[in-house]
């Protein structure tokens, strides 16, 4: 998908992120988190650039990037949909909610829709069990949306 590369953090912007932390190799995780925040995922060229700028061997950058769940090495959509599968949400019917969303988007867990709008993930607790079963799109939380609600909510995202 060549057209998608321009959405990525350009190397200049990665440089600016690194400069913000004074080019310290100890800032590796913070740098990766900032890139993850802007791009929604970590591309191989981003990791290579970080490795050479911070003077950290590439395998060590990958070791960090594959260790933390906050990082994604797979391309992510513009919006992240997370469905809670924690105990409280599970008891209150999150598997059914997940199926509903999954069917609506036509993708399974961990996958991204073809138009690059949404990525679908499951998580194990969002800390708002009273809303369960709960679904979050980026920073917005929705309590047990029906199929009709879902259509309305999803249409608000580009």
């Amino acid at each position: 998908m060549p057209e998608a590369t321009e959405e990525l953090c350009s190397l200049d912007r990665i440089d600016r992120i690194i400069d913000r932390y004074g080019g310290q190799r100890s800032a590796l995780i913070q740098v990766l988190l900032d890139i993850q925040k802007e791009d929604k995922w970590l591309a191989e060229e981003s990791l290579r650039h970080v490795a050479s700028r911070l003077n950290v061997p590439l395998p060590q950058v990958y070791q960090v990037a594959t260790f933390y769940k906050a990082f994604s090495l797979a391309r992510r959509g513009r919006h992240l949909i997370t469905v809670c599968m924690g105990t409280a949400c599970h008891v209150r019917g999150s598997p059914r909610l997940f199926d509903r969303v999954s069917q609506k988007l036509g993708v399974g867990p961990g996958k991204t829709t073809h138009d690059g709008r949404f990525s679908l993930l499951t998580v194990n607790c969002m800390g708002c069990c009273a809303l369960g079963p709960v679904l979050a799109i980026d920073e917005d939380y929705h309590s047990n949306p029906s199929a009709a609600d879902l259509g309305r909510i999803l249409s608000q995202y580009e």
Partner: peptide, 13 residues
Amino acid sequence: DEVKHTNCIGFVG
């Protein structure tokens, strides 16, 4: 890493 300084392999996951 420490002897060869080549850093070809690493832990992943």
